[in-house]
Design a protein around this nucleic acid. Sequence first.
DNA 1: TTTAATTCCGATAACCTTGCCGGGAACGTT
DNA 2: AACGTTCCCGGCAAGGTTATCGGAATTAAA
Lengths: 365, 365
Amino acid sequence: MPGTLSVIPGNYSGLPVIFTEAMEKQKTIKDIAQALGISTSTVSRALRDAWDVKAETKKAVKALAEKFNYEPNRLAISLLKRQTHTIGVIIPNLDYVLATMVKGIDEVALEAGYTVMVCQSDESYGREIVNTNRLLDSLVDGFIFSVSSETKVYEHIKKIQAKKKPLVQFDRVVNAIKTPIVRLDNIEGGYQATKHLIEQGYKKIAILAGPENLNISNKRMEGFEKALREHDIKLNKHFSIHCDFNQQYAYEATRELLNTRNRPDAIFTISDRMAIGAMLAIKEKKLNMPMDIGLVGFNNEPVTNLVTPSISSVEMFAFEIGKAAAKRFLEVLHSEEDLSDQEIVIKPKMVVRESSRRIPLKDIS
Amino acid sequence: MPGTLSVIPGNYSGLPVIFTEAMEKQKTIKDIAQALGISTSTVSRALRDAWDVKAETKKAVKALAEKFNYEPNRLAISLLKRQTHTIGVIIPNLDYVLATMVKGIDEVALEAGYTVMVCQSDESYGREIVNTNRLLDSLVDGFIFSVSSETKVYEHIKKIQAKKKPLVQFDRVVNAIKTPIVRLDNIEGGYQATKHLIEQGYKKIAILAGPENLNISNKRMEGFEKALREHDIKLNKHFSIHCDFNQQYAYEATRELLNTRNRPDAIFTISDRMAIGAMLAIKEKKLNMPMDIGLVGFNNEPVTNLVTPSISSVEMFAFEIGKAAAKRFLEVLHSEEDLSDQEIVIKPKMVVRESSRRIPLKDIS
DNA sequence: TTTAATTCCGATAACCTTGCCGGGAACGTT
DNA sequence: AACGTTCCCGGCAAGGTTATCGGAATTAAA
């Protein structure tokens, strides 16, 4: 009763609660049916404009639904239909690149009427498992996945497949699991960066890569090696360094690298954050960039354009990758076809800045 | 039947499908009950270790549940209990600060057994409404909210309250809605930044603020004015500039500002991204920082420490704010108390860097 | 021997919605 | 008059789980 003083069960505050219109319990089709003296089935059909219900009845039902502020209970429908219109997104963190990708996913999902549950594993294998299980029994309709750098065992991902949930991998993918994939052409990215350095006259090029089980890192390294081979530069194994995927480690690794007798004259890092770390070490050594040493990062984050000197980097179109991943997910969800052997591969683009431009632009033409 | 060749309905691929153990449909308590010749009620109680079921029966039930790989259907439970263990998080974007806050929210939520649905409105009022409604009928248990800069009408937020869903505002809050709040002490932040500039000898200080309806912007401005008043510096209204919350606009505004006859000798921007924009304009004018002009940003994003000169900024402890918001949300959810007039206010901390340090450190002591 | 307490379990309703089936009424066709 | 159609609606089951109630069987107390 609107405006009536009353005490609701579960209210232990001791205070009486005033029921107002807005506070009343959510109405259901049952309420509408009761008020109109018809059955719930008819109400349900009327609301969905079924052909077999009189126009007059429809009007009455819809009017009352409006008045009651009726909204269907999605949980009940989800339970019945066995789908929740929810996509689980598992990502290792929320740095610039991933956040941009999530933005892309979000955009497409929203458009298609899906809601996204984002869980970040914080690069931790354990949390990735917890998150996966949590989403799995929250009954998401499927997953868009990017593995953490710590993950080496994939049982939790196989579990998704065992439950026949659609699954798309993006960005940091693992090939041991057969799924549709949306990713950058990382070999090409590494190749472009390295080739650029060679063309600028650098001869002793080092690479700062990530953990050894990280696919994207290995692929970029592959491109790096390919470029060296093509230009007949011998691979120096001391110049291939694996370190953790962050600024601090890159800084330390670079410091060490610059202290060796035969130090490199250029460094390619597989992320911009690592490039920043390298830059700090280079500045500390008072080396001139790009003359004494060249530097190329990866991701083309805005920060690369703000530091001095600005850092060359490889644009990876994160937003596009996110959108493509979501689109591919929806395709998997709605089509009967098996897309699990298909990859969507985005081409990267080298962006040259001060940190690696020895030859002025005018001298090239 | 495991291993049996069969055709499942809805399989239009033309190929027969091999049923394996892993692919079988999810078992329910009904299946367990049937297999054991007991009722579902007993299975349900046994699984939850109720006192009124024989130890022997419990053991049998649990063993079979294990073997069947049983997992309760959360949807059914949610429908029954009217709670989903899901928190809706509405944010205007996923930049560094918000992403860090989301990380904090995520951390606490995960710990407490809640899953987070993050929706970014992209600073758009319309999308904020869509997202709110979407989450509202996805039946999240409540909301942790940060309004977009475009939002001036709050009906969609009131709708949350009308449905009696717990609601906590954080960071970008609006006072027109009475809810528990977790936020930075923005007045104090603006005050600290401005006071610091004054102490460094700057006399003509301008502020680059955000849109006029943005609470955090206005509060930081209030602190700015308070510091000026305290030091008997007259407010120059040409030095208080509202512009959009991004780098480009800040750049343009600063350019204009520096071209006036009586240009300021210091600029306080209410975000680091705006500080970057200002810095670019300053560099373009070939003015020396900090000698000709001082600059202080807000948020203390990592980039402030990477550019040259490094930019002073106000640390806002985003991760802590996120954690506090989630904790407060859980309190609201679980306690009967009305916390809607309570604010949790985090103190900011001024971080001095090159862009505003005219007086060397040694000269102070 | 009757009464009371204890131990264990099943039936039923409830949460909310949809889909299938069937059935009554009105109409038209042979 | 008998049959087939069309139109409109209600009943029931299903989706998976839990809470409440009551009842049967066993043991303990009077």
